[in-house]
Design a binder for these strands. Sequence first.
DNA 1: CGCCGGATTGATATTGGTCAACTACGGTGG
DNA 2: CCACCGTAGTTGACCAATATCAATCCGGCG
Lengths: 269, 269
Amino acid sequence: MSEGSASEVNDVGNHPAQPSRPGITAIDLSPVIANLRLHAPLSAADRSAIETFLGESALRVRAGSELIPAGEPGMGFALVDGWVAHEMLLDDGRMQLTALFVPGDTFDLNADLIDECEYSLRAITDSIVAKISTLQLRRLTDRHPHLRDAFAWERLQQLSNNRELLLSLGRRSGAERIAHLFCEVFCRLQHVRRTRGNECDLPLTHGQLADLTGMTSVHVHRSLTLLRSQGLIEWRHGRLKIRDFERLSAFARFDPTYLHAGTNPSGAS
Amino acid sequence: MSEGSASEVNDVGNHPAQPSRPGITAIDLSPVIANLRLHAPLSAADRSAIETFLGESALRVRAGSELIPAGEPGMGFALVDGWVAHEMLLDDGRMQLTALFVPGDTFDLNADLIDECEYSLRAITDSIVAKISTLQLRRLTDRHPHLRDAFAWERLQQLSNNRELLLSLGRRSGAERIAHLFCEVFCRLQHVRRTRGNECDLPLTHGQLADLTGMTSVHVHRSLTLLRSQGLIEWRHGRLKIRDFERLSAFARFDPTYLHAGTNPSGAS
DNA sequence: CGCCGGATTGATATTGGTCAACTACGGTGG
DNA sequence: CCACCGTAGTTGACCAATATCAATCCGGCG
């Protein structure tokens, strides 16, 4: 359904984030920090440790490229900016995206123990990622217990998102799956301050959304038409506007509890 | 689709496993040990530590009961014997099982950090489980690095199984999902020496299998009829016989790589 | 014997997939 | 500035997979 391409990875430079030095292409690590802070208090020392750590290993990857091709050893990541997905293939070409990551997410922590990965990591947009090995992580968290807690939470969050997607694929209708995904993405972006009013980025094609929700791009289109005709959403040029969060989340039976972040964005506007 | 009931939990006694003392109702911890040994070498000390740990906290739970009701705090477990599933509910009654555990599995490690669980744990059969808190786990793994590795692997395995189920629900047909599940269960039971020839337990009802595969019990039945008519399986009275593993796994496009255990059971018979 | 929870079966309704145009639009080269 | 191209979005007709509804059957158990 989607098209692969060779892995394109370029070093972004290993200057730690330096907001105090304008003119330098400093990397904005705030989404990663925001996510980590959702579940554990971070001291200034904790933050500076993680900032140095991420800043030193940030890489730029191009839209469409694979961070990790299937069959190769795994690797942990922090997604500093951009969108990335887990992609799984059946040998007859059927394809399913099994996870979607947005700026600030960490994923596949400890996956470097695996030496033959059955999925691949696909960059949806141009992105900036930082590799995180189990060893480095262990060194970091031994010295910063709060970070250990924060990363443990992020791992749990991953499982939680998996379960909710399983519930969608197993029991929600096509339109419900899409509506649910929109609610989830909006909330997750809100946690990292990447929403503006009731709008956020959603840089997916219909085909990618189909691969994520286990549908066809044709059916995705029809379901979107339904959601639009109900006045629930608008979505053009990679930008999603949620016109009625209450009704959309009721339609999708979206319950933000599983995001474990407290804030229900109903009032966002 | 399934029916709930109040949590029924009874202490099984806290004698560590004592195979050397017949006559006492010793608990057989070998499936848990077997799973842990799949990915890390365990010394005699490691094994005795985990045996003592599990033996002391083993509990008996009854078929149909909930180990953890949705909405309550989470808890980690080792499934010493029996079958357990993760169950998720939509508010209109639609239900999906999002994970299935067999003897020897550990699951939800670190989930005790969560104070409001959006899923529940349902005992499919009478089972014996041992609770594992993050704190206890940390104490244990600090002293036994091999156990730390083994538990890290088990967590990764959980994610891996999730992904494969997502691929099934998103892209495999009903019959393929069932065939795939049969292959997976057989392999997992083989790893803990719970198969005999090409047979193993499969104590599910059609309805539970439907809840796991995102189908209807009626359609499960029709798909089973197909698999049976092709001479691929037999399944009666909770006992599954795989009549042709090669053809079954080809049909399901089952690739055991994701189980990360090396052994392909094609030759089992 | 009668009850009950599954299993089995058939008829029918829905959902979603497939195929095949056709359109809109951004990017590129002339 | 415009012609051309390629990707993605849009639409309709039709088909296949799966759900729904409603009996009926079967085996275990009080």
